[in-house]
Design a protein around this nucleic acid. Structure first.
Lengths: 122, 122
DNA sequence: GAGATAATCAGTAACGATTACTAAATTTAT
DNA sequence: ATAAATTTAGTAATCGTTACTGATTATCTC
């Protein structure tokens, strides 16, 4: 994976926010800096960066996919009211070995998402 | 939520399999029993049954949403190779209270998905 | 059980997120 | 500086899902 101005810009957008934007939100933010950037470019780079483990994708039971620029292991809380996705600081659980034993396969990672009402929406 | 032949059929399909079919797979299975069943009906009932907590939806990083007829608390393993979703029997984790404390909100549930290669694909 | 009321359906159209494609521009290698 | 490889913008196509409508089926009341 080489360098490109757009890819750098995407990474910078994602590193500069504590929110967990969707592809479209990232696109809008990038367009402020360069109105000529293309939505296809956003999706292509999100896929590339996700595959490389440089960013994280977050699948929720609501709306479309969210992305996270921080890859140190952590979990997420999704509000069923406003849909906001926020980081949690609870410690990572260590049960991948157990899962490997049970499945006979290999585990590369896991995602843990909590659902509920956030402070505001409760 | 009332009774309907199609809704019963959907539930029966979901209870009769240990796989975790997508909406479309469920649709195909239902069509074998009744060729006139509609895809819209499948989606509508999946949404209703999910809201009522009678079935479970599983969001993964691959393809479309999968559904699970068993709602006792359990977790899932998704193969990055073949995409198969399987049940795990590891014990539920008890950290929702901790999440409530951290967020100041209320937690209604959580999903835990492991990714990797299954026995066959490894 | 018959008729009224409400829920649900089949079928199809519309939608929104994502992916695929192509010729032009940019980056990298020589 | 030139050639080769990668990436882009822009747009069209795809796919999962949702919305809509008039017809059907279930439920309720007598």
């Amino acid at each position: 994976m080489g360098y490109s101005r757009q890819r750098e810009m995407l990474l910078s957008v994602l590193k500069d926010t504590k929110s967990h934007p969707t592809a479209n939100a990232i696109y809008e933010e990038m367009r402020k800096r360069d109105p000529k950037v293309s939505l296809g470019t956003v999706y292509r780079n999100l896929a590339l960066l996700t595959e490389s483990g440089i960013i994280l994708r977050i699948d929720t039971e609501h709306d479309s996919v969210h992305y996270d620029g921080f890859t140190h292991p952590h979990y997420h809380f999704v509000c069923n009211g406003c849909g906001e996705v926020s980081d949690l600081s609870i410690n990572p659980i260590g049960i991948e070995a157990e899962v490997e034993k049970e499945t006979g396969g290999s585990v590369a990672g896991h995602t843990l998402v909590f659902y509920g009402k956030c402070k505001k929406c409760k």
